[in-house]
Design a protein around this nucleic acid. Sequence first.
DNA 1: TAAAACAACGTTACCGGTAACTTTATTGGA
DNA 2: TCCAATAAAGTTACCGGTAACGTTGTTTTA
Lengths: 342, 342
Amino acid sequence: MKNNNSDFFRAKLEDVAAACGVTKMTVSRALRGVEGVSEKKRLKILEMAKKLNYVPDNSARTLAMTNSNLIGISIPTLYNDVFAELIDAMRETFRRAGYSTVIETTNYDKQNELEWVQRLISWRPAAIVLTGQEHLDETVDALRTQRIPTLEVWDAAKAPIDLAVGIDHYDAGFRLGRYVASLGYRRPAYVGAEQGFDPRAEARLRGLKQAFRDVGRVQDWTEIRTGYRSDPSAGGLGLHDAKAQAPDCDLVVFLNDHYALGGLMACHELGIRVPEDLGVVGFNGVPFSQSLKPLLTTMTSRRHDIGQIGAKKLLARLNGVSVRGAEILVGKVIEGTSTRPQ
Amino acid sequence: MKNNNSDFFRAKLEDVAAACGVTKMTVSRALRGVEGVSEKKRLKILEMAKKLNYVPDNSARTLAMTNSNLIGISIPTLYNDVFAELIDAMRETFRRAGYSTVIETTNYDKQNELEWVQRLISWRPAAIVLTGQEHLDETVDALRTQRIPTLEVWDAAKAPIDLAVGIDHYDAGFRLGRYVASLGYRRPAYVGAEQGFDPRAEARLRGLKQAFRDVGRVQDWTEIRTGYRSDPSAGGLGLHDAKAQAPDCDLVVFLNDHYALGGLMACHELGIRVPEDLGVVGFNGVPFSQSLKPLLTTMTSRRHDIGQIGAKKLLARLNGVSVRGAEILVGKVIEGTSTRPQ
DNA sequence: TAAAACAACGTTACCGGTAACTTTATTGGA
DNA sequence: TCCAATAAAGTTACCGGTAACGTTGTTTTA
């Protein structure tokens, strides 16, 4: 842990000041571009700072000023493009507003999330962004008692800690279900993760079922639970199981696009034609889903919009504008060719 | 940028100290678990700290101690699992050694990389990890003059700034080429990004060609340049082009697995059977490539090993152990079913 | 031409911790 | 029983910046 670069000299404000024959306060002003320094002297100071390889110390600065420009963003995993899009959208917005961001992955573990929040709070961040709305009580407490402006993205079903932007997953499932049900499918199967693993997916499934009930009076779904996360192989296994359990099913709705990819591959392997023999549906509308043949029927989870709208709301809050707590976006069906009218 | 929580009170060491009737130094010791505090008093202090919602201020701590436990990691993009694996492997190793990490994406822009390095240096990091070996001179200068222990991962062909761990991409291409050439393919095509975009891919291509020259006297490759990055659709377009330009080609080597996925989908669309009519090869061995049907022939880029070995080397350096500059790993062919003996 | 209004710096104090040293009990050994 | 050793705190100084205010010398303005 030691960093004993022995005799290494690192210039500080005072060194630059001494070299220029002024006080460190003048150097501080010159470097920050604050007025109160003659143009001639400023140039001299800037030159000298470069010559001495002066680098400001953020710890000292942050300590002296009471506000930081740091925003922390936590996502479950990097192994999924959906979070990449979310992050990109937010960072860009924050960056333009002069904030810098740090990213953390929780690996879907609430305890990890808590520990990160605690570490981050020590850095006195201007704000924190969390994914989802399921947190340990301690996490919520910490954010509340420290008065950290907090944004929850991805989901916005419950009352937020502070701000939240996301889509309503029940509604998303319902809309997706309404679309495929309208195509005439009547013997659907669902392939997802073990129950309790992904509450948002479960909400979508409830919406799906409701849509089929509403439209087509379909009551019984073949439900396959397999694997977890975004590993396509889980989708492949799921498809095998679904076909074994319900050989006459005409549609398989997968937990997400990754699962659906695995499912499509399994179809290919088994000689099942999509969409002729079977309809396949994913969720998220990740980039690769639109490169598949057939084009995957899925639904955008509006990651870019969530990120951008969320970031803007958070910025507004940081600027003292009062903003509504939760904002719910509506997912949009992508009508691919992996389903067709029956 | 202001964070004017007006009258909000945030407890500091002194507040906890006053509440316990001791000095802040004692509290500091108690909270850090440093010896010199009686057990009874320590418990009382811990309790009081919790009661007052005390949170240490990292800026003050970092300023007071001269060494930090922060490591910055920069990768090109989050839109690719390969970097996720790299990051995960490194973070875990760093975390266990007591370091915390921050992630940045450069979006393949060296100027972005430089600006991030400059920002990060202000935080006095213990070390910095960069991806690749292509940096602006200013970046290298900054790292050198500030004596920041630096690790370059992914590639290790050139002399490193400090430490480097990666695979030799020419060698990787050569090995991959030797394998597929040995299967009997003789009319290969390559589908990649525009020249100059991805120097590592170009190195692989040179290795590939050499292998075919060595083994089979194949001289002319059909080279298709299309798209960029990791968008599978670029691979699909590339396959169409390749088939148009060289209808009798028996093998298509793609820039990476993502391209290969697009290529496989295009084959499916065009009724080209893989591997019966055409061999398909990718690169990286990302998780989904092993869920494809046929199983993709590809090569691991050993991201997990690179991350872990790199992190360990860096830790050794931080602990004052002198370590060799560059370490080169060897990629390993994954013999899939998207190619077969001809 | 004297007072007021600046511009260009310097001074002082403080941000919230920690290292290193000193002081004050407490304990144990000869 | 007295002194050295040790444990448990307290003191002091400093980390590297910034805000707020004070001090000059030089212009304006009345």
